[in-house]
Design a protein around this nucleic acid. Structure first.
Length: 201
DNA sequence: CTTCCTTTGAAGCAG
DNA sequence: CTGCTTCAAAGGAAG
Protein backbone atom coordinates (compact mmCIF):
# COMPACT_ATOMS: atom_id res chain seq x y z
CA UNK A 1 0.00 0.00 0.00
CA UNK A 2 1.56 3.14 -1.16
CA UNK A 3 4.86 1.41 -1.61
CA UNK A 4 6.96 2.28 -4.56
CA UNK A 5 7.30 -0.14 -7.39
CA UNK A 6 10.52 -2.04 -6.84
CA UNK A 7 12.02 -1.12 -10.18
CA UNK A 8 11.01 2.48 -9.96
CA UNK A 9 13.85 4.59 -8.66
CA UNK A 10 12.52 7.05 -6.20
CA UNK A 11 14.26 10.11 -7.42
CA UNK A 12 12.41 13.32 -7.29
CA UNK A 13 12.60 15.60 -10.28
CA UNK A 14 14.96 18.27 -9.09
CA UNK A 15 14.93 20.17 -12.32
CA UNK A 16 12.66 23.03 -12.99
CA UNK A 17 10.03 22.54 -15.64
CA UNK A 18 11.24 24.22 -18.79
CA UNK A 19 7.99 26.13 -18.96
CA UNK A 20 8.99 28.12 -15.95
CA UNK A 21 12.63 28.26 -15.17
CA UNK A 22 13.64 30.32 -12.18
CA UNK A 23 15.08 32.79 -14.61
CA UNK A 24 11.70 33.18 -16.23
CA UNK A 25 10.09 33.55 -12.89
CA UNK A 26 12.50 36.30 -12.02
CA UNK A 27 11.73 38.01 -15.31
CA UNK A 28 8.08 37.67 -14.57
CA UNK A 29 8.51 39.04 -11.11
CA UNK A 30 10.37 42.06 -12.37
CA UNK A 31 7.76 42.71 -15.02
CA UNK A 32 5.07 42.46 -12.42
CA UNK A 33 6.96 44.91 -10.30
CA UNK A 34 7.07 47.33 -13.19
CA UNK A 35 3.65 46.82 -14.65
CA UNK A 36 1.47 45.52 -11.88
CA UNK A 37 -0.67 42.44 -11.72
CA UNK A 38 -3.27 43.82 -14.10
CA UNK A 39 -0.81 44.39 -16.91
CA UNK A 40 -1.58 42.86 -20.29
CA UNK A 41 1.82 41.28 -19.92
CA UNK A 42 0.23 38.98 -17.45
CA UNK A 43 -2.00 37.47 -20.08
CA UNK A 44 0.58 37.37 -22.80
CA UNK A 45 3.17 35.71 -20.65
CA UNK A 46 0.62 33.19 -19.55
CA UNK A 47 -0.22 32.58 -23.17
CA UNK A 48 3.46 32.02 -23.81
CA UNK A 49 3.23 28.99 -21.64
CA UNK A 50 4.45 30.28 -18.36
CA UNK A 51 2.45 28.88 -15.52
CA UNK A 52 1.42 32.07 -13.87
CA UNK A 53 -2.28 31.53 -13.85
CA UNK A 54 -2.68 32.50 -10.32
CA UNK A 55 -3.99 29.74 -8.16
CA UNK A 56 -7.47 28.50 -8.31
CA UNK A 57 -6.50 25.09 -7.13
CA UNK A 58 -6.90 24.09 -3.54
CA UNK A 59 -3.26 23.63 -2.84
CA UNK A 60 -1.18 26.64 -3.44
CA UNK A 61 1.89 24.64 -2.66
CA UNK A 62 1.42 22.42 -5.65
CA UNK A 63 -0.25 24.76 -8.07
CA UNK A 64 1.38 28.06 -7.50
CA UNK A 65 4.58 29.15 -9.16
CA UNK A 66 5.88 30.68 -5.98
CA UNK A 67 5.75 27.58 -3.91
CA UNK A 68 6.90 25.22 -6.55
CA UNK A 69 8.91 26.40 -9.48
CA UNK A 70 10.02 29.68 -8.02
CA UNK A 71 11.39 28.13 -4.92
CA UNK A 72 14.99 27.30 -5.60
CA UNK A 73 15.99 24.87 -2.95
CA UNK A 74 19.29 24.52 -1.25
CA UNK A 75 21.65 22.01 -2.70
CA UNK A 76 21.88 18.81 -0.73
CA UNK A 77 24.71 18.31 1.70
CA UNK A 78 26.63 15.08 2.03
CA UNK A 79 24.36 13.57 4.60
CA UNK A 80 21.27 14.42 2.61
CA UNK A 81 22.72 12.58 -0.36
CA UNK A 82 23.49 9.70 1.91
CA UNK A 83 19.91 9.69 3.12
CA UNK A 84 18.50 9.91 -0.35
CA UNK A 85 20.49 6.91 -1.43
CA UNK A 86 20.13 4.76 1.66
CA UNK A 87 16.66 5.48 2.92
CA UNK A 88 14.97 3.11 0.46
CA UNK A 89 17.50 0.41 1.29
CA UNK A 90 16.99 0.87 4.99
CA UNK A 91 13.24 0.78 4.64
CA UNK A 92 13.48 -2.47 2.80
CA UNK A 93 15.97 -3.82 5.26
CA UNK A 94 13.78 -2.98 8.19
CA UNK A 95 10.75 -4.31 6.42
CA UNK A 96 9.49 -0.73 6.11
CA UNK A 97 7.64 -1.32 9.33
CA UNK A 98 5.70 1.35 11.03
CA UNK A 99 8.93 3.22 11.07
CA UNK A 100 8.54 6.92 10.73
CA UNK A 101 10.82 9.14 8.79
CA UNK A 102 12.14 10.72 11.94
CA UNK A 103 13.11 7.34 13.32
CA UNK A 104 14.67 6.26 10.08
CA UNK A 105 16.68 9.44 10.08
CA UNK A 106 18.04 8.63 13.51
CA UNK A 107 19.19 5.28 12.24
CA UNK A 108 20.65 6.86 9.15
CA UNK A 109 22.51 9.26 11.36
CA UNK A 110 24.11 6.37 13.21
CA UNK A 111 25.04 4.64 10.01
CA UNK A 112 26.50 7.85 8.72
CA UNK A 113 28.81 7.97 11.69
CA UNK A 114 29.73 4.34 11.26
CA UNK A 115 30.52 4.90 7.62
CA UNK A 116 34.23 4.84 6.85
CA UNK A 117 35.69 8.16 5.81
CA UNK A 118 36.40 6.85 2.37
CA UNK A 119 32.77 6.03 1.84
CA UNK A 120 31.64 9.28 3.35
CA UNK A 121 33.89 11.06 0.93
CA UNK A 122 31.74 9.83 -1.91
CA UNK A 123 28.83 11.77 -0.54
CA UNK A 124 30.89 14.85 0.20
CA UNK A 125 31.93 14.75 -3.43
CA UNK A 126 28.32 14.48 -4.49
CA UNK A 127 27.44 17.41 -2.31
CA UNK A 128 30.26 19.51 -3.71
CA UNK A 129 29.25 18.67 -7.25
CA UNK A 130 25.69 19.56 -6.42
CA UNK A 131 26.74 22.88 -4.98
CA UNK A 132 28.81 23.70 -8.02
CA UNK A 133 26.06 22.76 -10.44
CA UNK A 134 23.59 24.69 -8.38
CA UNK A 135 25.79 27.73 -8.46
CA UNK A 136 26.27 27.45 -12.19
CA UNK A 137 22.59 26.99 -12.78
CA UNK A 138 21.41 29.72 -10.46
CA UNK A 139 24.13 32.34 -10.36
CA UNK A 140 23.34 34.91 -7.77
CA UNK A 141 21.06 32.64 -5.80
CA UNK A 142 21.57 32.66 -2.10
CA UNK A 143 20.24 30.43 0.62
CA UNK A 144 19.11 33.71 2.10
CA UNK A 145 16.12 33.56 -0.24
CA UNK A 146 14.69 30.64 1.69
CA UNK A 147 15.87 31.85 5.02
CA UNK A 148 13.48 33.04 7.68
CA UNK A 149 15.28 34.96 10.31
CA UNK A 150 14.88 33.76 13.84
CA UNK A 151 11.37 34.23 15.07
CA UNK A 152 11.06 31.30 17.40
CA UNK A 153 13.79 30.57 19.87
CA UNK A 154 14.84 27.11 18.89
CA UNK A 155 13.84 25.35 15.71
CA UNK A 156 10.54 26.45 14.35
CA UNK A 157 9.53 27.64 10.96
CA UNK A 158 9.04 31.34 10.70
CA UNK A 159 5.61 32.87 10.33
CA UNK A 160 6.35 36.49 10.77
CA UNK A 161 5.21 39.54 8.94
CA UNK A 162 8.77 40.33 8.04
CA UNK A 163 8.96 37.11 6.11
CA UNK A 164 6.35 38.39 3.70
CA UNK A 165 9.03 40.53 2.18
CA UNK A 166 10.60 37.50 0.58
CA UNK A 167 7.51 36.85 -1.48
CA UNK A 168 6.43 38.56 -4.67
CA UNK A 169 4.17 41.43 -3.81
CA UNK A 170 1.38 40.26 -6.10
CA UNK A 171 0.72 37.26 -3.91
CA UNK A 172 0.12 39.62 -1.07
CA UNK A 173 -1.83 41.87 -3.38
CA UNK A 174 -4.18 39.10 -4.34
CA UNK A 175 -4.47 37.93 -0.81
CA UNK A 176 -2.74 34.63 -1.22
CA UNK A 177 -0.36 35.66 1.46
CA UNK A 178 -1.62 37.57 4.41
CA UNK A 179 -0.63 38.34 7.92
CA UNK A 180 -2.90 37.92 10.87
CA UNK A 181 -2.54 37.24 14.54
CA UNK A 182 -1.47 33.70 13.94
CA UNK A 183 1.18 34.73 11.49
CA UNK A 184 1.71 34.28 7.82
CA UNK A 185 -1.11 32.57 6.00
CA UNK A 186 -0.93 31.18 2.54
CA UNK A 187 -3.92 28.96 2.10
CA UNK A 188 -4.24 30.05 -1.48
CA UNK A 189 -7.78 31.21 -0.99
CA UNK A 190 -9.22 34.41 0.26
CA UNK A 191 -11.27 34.24 3.38
CA UNK A 192 -13.20 37.17 4.70
CA UNK A 193 -10.78 37.55 7.53
CA UNK A 194 -7.92 37.43 5.11
CA UNK A 195 -9.57 40.09 3.02
CA UNK A 196 -9.81 42.18 6.12
CA UNK A 197 -6.16 41.85 6.91
CA UNK A 198 -4.02 44.35 5.21
CA UNK A 199 -1.64 43.50 2.42
CA UNK A 200 1.92 44.54 2.94
CA UNK A 201 2.03 46.73 -0.15
C1' DC B 1 -4.68 22.09 4.87
C1' DT B 2 0.23 23.24 7.49
C1' DT B 3 3.72 22.07 10.77
C1' DC B 4 6.43 18.84 13.49
C1' DC B 5 9.68 15.27 14.06
C1' DT B 6 14.64 13.75 13.28
C1' DT B 7 19.34 13.47 11.25
C1' DT B 8 24.02 16.15 9.28
C1' DG B 9 26.15 19.79 7.00
C1' DA B 10 26.15 24.38 4.51
C1' DA B 11 25.29 28.78 5.06
C1' DG B 12 22.91 32.98 6.86
C1' DC B 13 22.71 36.03 10.68
C1' DA B 14 23.71 38.51 15.11
C1' DG B 15 27.02 39.98 18.50
C1' DC C 1 35.48 34.91 14.44
C1' DT C 2 32.05 32.44 17.30
C1' DG C 3 27.82 30.47 18.10
C1' DC C 4 23.17 29.99 17.08
C1' DT C 5 19.41 29.29 13.50
C1' DT C 6 17.43 27.75 9.24
C1' DC C 7 16.85 24.53 5.52
C1' DA C 8 17.78 20.98 2.54
C1' DA C 9 14.85 15.02 2.36
C1' DA C 10 11.05 12.03 3.95
C1' DG C 11 6.47 10.89 5.19
C1' DG C 12 3.42 9.74 8.96
C1' DA C 13 1.61 12.14 13.04
C1' DA C 14 -0.21 16.00 15.05
C1' DG C 15 -2.54 20.40 15.05
Amino acid sequence: MGMRAPMSPSFVPCVMPTALSPHNVEMYRQMMMMNGPCSPLYGSMAAAGMKMDVPLAASMRTSNPLNQEDHIKKPLNAFMWFMKENRPKLMEELGYKEKQSAELNKELGKRWHDLPKEEQQKYFDMARADREQHKAKYPGWSARENYAVHKRKKKRRDKSEASLAQYPFYLVFYGYLTVNDSGLSNTGRLTSSQQASKPLC
